[in-house]
Design a protein around this nucleic acid. Structure first.
Length: 460
RNA sequence: UCCUCAGUAGCUCAGUUGGUUAGAGCACCUGGCUGUUAACCAGGGGGUCCUAAGUUCGAGUCUUAGCUGAGGAGCCA
């Protein structure tokens, strides 16, 4: 029986049960031992009470922090204060001992930096157990939300031949010999001899393909790995992360904002409703404000302002910013934080950015100088969602591609969707780890993914 | 990539103005304790003070360079 079920089943009291898990601590004396056992099903442990004289000394010596054991016994009311029930052990099996001289996890606190170096063992800590369970719950809730709202899960390619998304530096995918690649006459690499007959990369976004799906199924979403070869070294960036990208036909920018807000609130509520114990643990250990902050998001409407209004707000704020605010220049992190944390003191959606600082595919406004992009800004983590209404007009889109000197030929299929049965449509990208970061209150994105990939780090 | 800070026992950390043999808690070993709550009490073992060079009678401590990590910035999700 798993510990989570056991702890809530009063019916099992007096019956014989068996639990299997990893030892968190062992306390006691030569007569009696108390073992706190955890199997990952919950943050909580169950206490096994072991009469030392009933088991061989050699066996008891193997029961140390980190060991994997099975305990059979009667489930009883506990006379102790810290737990209501416990197991009176009758049978004990050690599946795997963990030599305390070399096992790196102890029952005292470790730094998150140290745990990153032992990512193969850190899921066994309370913190990472909690984070990983919350991560799972959020992933599940994402699929549930979309499924319940008529969206179809579309699998967009991970290997892509298009370099037109402009979302960042890409990782090359190749089977060519790195030491001795085939060359063209001018000395450049001849990619026509590569596996796909052309240059290919890992995807930086499934959006363009997502649009193809939306212009057939009306509402789709993607949820898959995404890769950016940027040399970004921050607590908010990974080289490999998971991104959710819904794309909807017949949605204008306002519908897009409504969806983004409803979606985020649904996910946060889902975590509050289903991960209470884990959130409580994280609140207690890391971030006293965590649950209050999550509730605050649910209770408040996101402030919706245009980029132009944001610039005005910042200009009249009287704040002394390191980077001066000026219409036409992208908002800096300090500006975004000021708007979200001080000026409005709640999540903010900024729309209608100058077209010069946004991607080619965003729908151009009538004013000729702004586009219907939107960024959802959250306290602590900044940009959690970036999205837009897409340009559905063939001529305008083609002109924009030419203006920016993007490889028009490679985008023929994207352009054709505007030529045949085009439709107004919108979508956005949500960084999954940024969501998990916000919901768990953790400080570093490398601590909310099991095996983080970042510059100079691909261990495990 | 830029800026700032840090690196001392397996882990978490202390180490004063440069001064004798570098400390504590946890973990480990020995002993004690019949119900513990990150159990407790007594004793013990455990160090390339990140690396290299330099200043000095003397460097964990000061200087320079490098490595690694963290925070901030840029890029973005």
């Amino acid at each position: 029986m798993r510990i989570k079920e056991l702890l809530k089943s009063n019916a099992a009291i007096g019956t014989k049960v068996e639990v299997k898990g990893w030892v968190r601590t062992k306390r006691g004396n030569k007569n009696i031992n108390f073992v706190a056992l955890n199997d990952g099903s919950t943050i909580h442990t169950i206490q096994a009470v072991i009469d030392a004289s009933a088991f061989p000394e050699d066996l008891m010596k193997q029961v140390t922090t980190g060991a994997c054991i099975a305990v059979k016994g009667i489930l009883v009311q506990s006379p102790g204060k810290e737990q209501s029930i416990e197991i009176q052990a009758e049978g004990l099996v050690v599946y795997g001992s963990a030599n305390p001289d070399t096992y790196p996890l102890q029952k005292k606190g470790h730094s998150l930096e140290f745990l990153r170096e032992i990512a193969h063992l850190r899921p066994r800590t309370n913190t990472f157990g909690a984070v990983l369970r919350i991560r799972h719950a959020l992933a599940f809730a994402i699929h549930k939300y979309f499924n319940d709202n008529g969206f179809f899960y579309l699998h967009t390619p991970i290997i892509t031949g298009s370099d037109a998304e402009g979302a960042g530096e890409m990782f090359r995918v190749t089977t060519l010999d790195a030491k001795n690649p085939p060359l063209l006459g001018d000395g450049s690499v001849n990619f026509s001899e590569d596996f796909f007959g052309k240059q290919t990369n890992l995807t930086v976004s499934g959006q363009l393909e997502g649009e193809l799906g939306a212009l057939a199924l009306s509402r789709i979403y993607t949820f898959g790995p995404t890769f950016r070869a940027e040399n970004s070294n921050t607590p908010r960036h990974l080289a490999e992360f998971w991104m959710i990208e819904p794309e909807m036909a017949f949605y204008e920018i306002k519908d897009n904002m409504d969806l983004a807000e409803d979606f985020l609130k649904y996910l946060i509520r889902y975590a509050l409703d289903n991960c209470r114990d884990d959130l409580e643990f994280l609140r207690k250990m890391y971030d006293e404000e965590l649950i209050a902050r999550l509730s605050f998001i649910l209770e408040n409407r996101f402030e919706r302002i245009t980029y132009t209004k944001a610039v005005e707000d910042l200009e009249k704020s009287g704040e002394n910013f390191e980077f001066p605010v000026k219409w036409g220049v992208d908002l800096q992190t300090e500006h975004e934080r000021y708007l979200v944390e001080k000026f409005y003191a709640k999540p903010v959606i900024v729309t209608d950015y100058p077209k010069a600082i946004k991607a080619f595919y965003m729908k151009q406004n009538e004013d000729g100088r702004t586009v219907r992009g939107m960024d959802v800004l959250f306290p602590k983590i900044g940009e959690i969602i970036g999205g837009s209404q897409r340009e559905e007009d063939y001529e305008k889109l083609k002109m924009r591609i030419r203006e920016l000197q993007l490889p028009e030929k490679d985008l023929w299929w994207y352009l054709e969707t505007r030529l045949f049965g085009t439709a107004p449509h919108s979508g956005f990208g949500l960084g999954f780890e940024r969501l998990v970061l916000f919901v768990t209150g953790m400080g570093n994105i490398r601590d909310v993914i099991p095996f983080p990939r970042a510059p100079k780090n691909a261990e495990f």
